[in-house]
Amino acid sequence: MKKNGVNMIKISAKNVDVFYGKKQALFNINLEIEENQVTALIGPSGCGKSTFLRCLNRMNDVIDICNVQGEIVINDFNINDKGCDVVRLREKIGMVFQKPNPFPKTLYENISYGPTIHGMAQSKQEMDEIVETSLKKAALWEEVKDRLHEPGTGLSGGQQQRLCIARAISVQPEVILMDEPCSALDPIATAQIEELIDELKKEHTIIIVTHSMAQAARVSQNTGFFHLGELIEHGSTDKIFKNPENNKTQDYITGRFG
């Protein structure tokens, strides 16, 4: 989706402030996210990168004391507007969490849940197809095709996380938010997920929060560095890792703090 050699902007955050009660967690974040690219958000613990991610599908609504200000424009539409319907928004913007959280139901039910509540399949056959393509895209089909009706919680950690990814893509979201998706996984499972992310970016815009700078360097095209609730620096991953402008970024990347 390139226009004149420049990537289209999918999401743009303007002057976003987030408060937990009286405590301010994010300060004036301005960030543009390119379509069909992987954007990594890095930074030390508690820097606000997950909070920012959760602003993008309004998951912060669940927290009573959380208050988000500023504009987040997706497809020319400010999702912080009163008129924004969170159910429709979250249909378009999927999310994968830090800890694999499959529903304690069968694999099939895990995948079909989203399409069911959004009325995406007219028949059992269509639903079967959605389940199959979602699992195939998540590179899980071959491993589980014979036990679709067994509980999803019986899978290994890495498989569970891929199941959660399959569940997220079952409703064909435009954007997938990933909140440290590999932090609970071993290196092999992590490698599988990273490979998957690379594949998924063809059809989806991906934003990934990660603790691992190596991972950010491997999977992302763009990187944003957060520190103490501020976005210190953002740009192409290459530039951030090889030639950062800001000293703090430099220090964090080289492992001097964090």
Binding site: N57, M59, V62, V87, R88, L89, R90, E91, G94, M95, F97, K99, N101, P102, F103, P104, Y113, G114, I117, H118, C164, R167, A168, V171
Partner: peptide
Amino acid sequence: PPSIREAALAMGASRMQTTMH
């Protein structure tokens, strides 16, 4: 666990659906 609620909400389930399903 709250992670189940978050999973359902993030799939676009309403609060009622999250609770009842």
